[in-house]
Amino acid sequence: MADSGTMTAAMTGPRGPKPKRAFNRTNIMIYGTLIVVALYYALPLYVMIVTSLKGLPEIQMGNIFAPPMEITFEPWVKAWAQACTGINCDGLSRGFWNSVRILIPSLIISVAVASVNGYALSMWKFKGSEVFFGILMIGAFIPYQIMLYPIVILLREAGLYGSLTGLVLVHVAFGMPINTLLFRNYFASIPEELFKAARVDGAGFWAIFFRIMLPMSLPIFVVSLIIQVTGIWNDFLFGVTYISSPDRYPMTVQLNNIVNSVQGVKEYNVNMAATLLTGLVPLVIYFASGKLFVRGIAAGAVKG
Rank of each mutant, 00 (worst) to 15 (best):
M1H: 14
M1I: 14
D3N: 12
D3Q: 13
S4Y: 11
T6P: 00
M11G: 12
G13F: 14
F23M: 02
I28F: 10
I30R: 02
L34T: 11
V36G: 07
Y41N: 00
Y41G: 03
L45V: 13
Y46T: 02
S52H: 06
I59P: 01
A66L: 01
P67C: 06
I71N: 03
T72I: 04
A79I: 02
A79F: 04
A81P: 00
I87L: 14
I87Y: 15
F96A: 10
W97M: 08
R101H: 09
I102T: 02
V111T: 12
V113A: 14
A114F: 13
N117H: 10
Y119D: 02
A120Y: 04
K127T: 11
S129G: 15
S129A: 15
E130M: 13
M137H: 00
G139F: 07
I151P: 01
I151L: 09
V152T: 06
R156C: 04
L160D: 01
G162M: 00
S163T: 12
T165I: 05
G166F: 02
L169K: 04
H171M: 04
V172D: 07
A173R: 02
I178S: 13
S189G: 14
I190H: 00
P191T: 06
G202Q: 07
W206D: 01
A207Q: 14
F209S: 03
L214K: 11
S217A: 14
S217V: 05
L218E: 09
I220E: 08
V222Y: 11
I226K: 12
V229Q: 04
V229E: 01
T230D: 08
F236R: 03
F236L: 13
Y242L: 01
S244N: 15
S245L: 09
D247Y: 10
D247E: 14
R248Y: 11
T252V: 12
G264N: 14
G264V: 12
A273D: 08
A274C: 03
T275W: 00
V281M: 10
L283V: 11
L283T: 09
I285W: 14
Y286I: 12
F287G: 05
F287C: 11
K291W: 00
L292S: 13
L292E: 05
R295I: 07
A298F: 02
G300F: 10
G300T: 07
K303N: 13
